[in-house]
Nucleic acid binder design. Structure first.
Lengths: 134, 134
DNA sequence: ATTTTCTTTTACGTTAACGTAAACGTAAGG
DNA sequence: CCTTACGTTTACGTTAACGTAAAAGAAAAT
């Protein structure tokens, strides 16, 4: 028997509100089953949610996130569409790689900032220990 | 003589509107000089803008971006504040490194998606060439 | 049985990050 | 001098991504 999840299972697992999950459904990013009136989420629903949230953490809009999720879920049949999809995938890869660069530079800047702080602290310490010697 | 920039210099260089730049000033992230009524931007203003926009590309809010910019601009005098700053810097570094992980995984997923697409295309090709042989 | 806990739908409210427009000043070019 | 281009402030509008509240049903706990 396949595992399923309630809406609050997912909400607490991913630390979002149920409102958020319902909102994603409204927008068409999730299509859970129903048990009577209650929503029932499959493992694949769960994966989709996880991927959408990952996209969000990277600063993508919901639409962008959802597009990417579609990308790895869709075994297109039509050749034209497949070729278009490949183009979009490569565009996204390029964007993300440029974002990687931004991240690296920001980390370098932060490292430098930290070093400066540490150096200042060290200078304060050495001055203090000099004073103690008097 | 130090170089300066007009608001539209910066707007066109970084591909944002002048409204955006004035908005950042309203929020206190930029404090350009004035020449009469006109805004005059220094190289350091320009750098701040550049860094804020880089933060935005990474999905940070303006406040978060601005906080980071403050981090590498501020030679604090007070020891307590310096220690706090170092803590914040390390927190940010941790966040960004986790974001790096997300990025890597998303790139891997996209690579896999691309491979699948290519494989499908290849299969379509081979079937086509078989048909041509009949 | 009833209180609490979870769920549902519907709908209005909120915040960030600008967009857009009005109404006006100024400076340079023809 | 007039137009054209760029600048200013003020203020209302917009979109995304939910938050929040109301009103009601169902199930689990006491």
């Amino acid at each position: 028997m396949r595992k399923t999840y309630t809406i609050s299972d997912l909400a607490s697992e991913f630390d979002v509100t149920t409102r958020t999950i319902r909102f994603y459904e409204e927008k068409g990013f999730l299509k859970p089953g129903r048990e009577g009136t209650r929503r029932v989420y499959s493992p694949s629903d769960r994966t989709r949610l996880r991927l959408i949230l990952r996209g969000k953490r990277l600063g993508l809009s919901l639409d962008e996130s959802a597009e990417i999720v579609m990308m790895y879920g869709s075994p297109r049949n039509n050749r034209k569409q497949l070729e278009k999809l490949i183009v979009r995938i490569r565009e996204k890869q390029t964007e993300l790689k440029s974002q990687q660069k931004d991240l690296e530079f920001m980390l370098l800047d932060l490292q430098e900032a930290e070093n400066n702080c540490m150096a200042t602290l060290t200078r304060m310490d050495s001055r203090k220990s000099l004073q103690e010697k008097t």
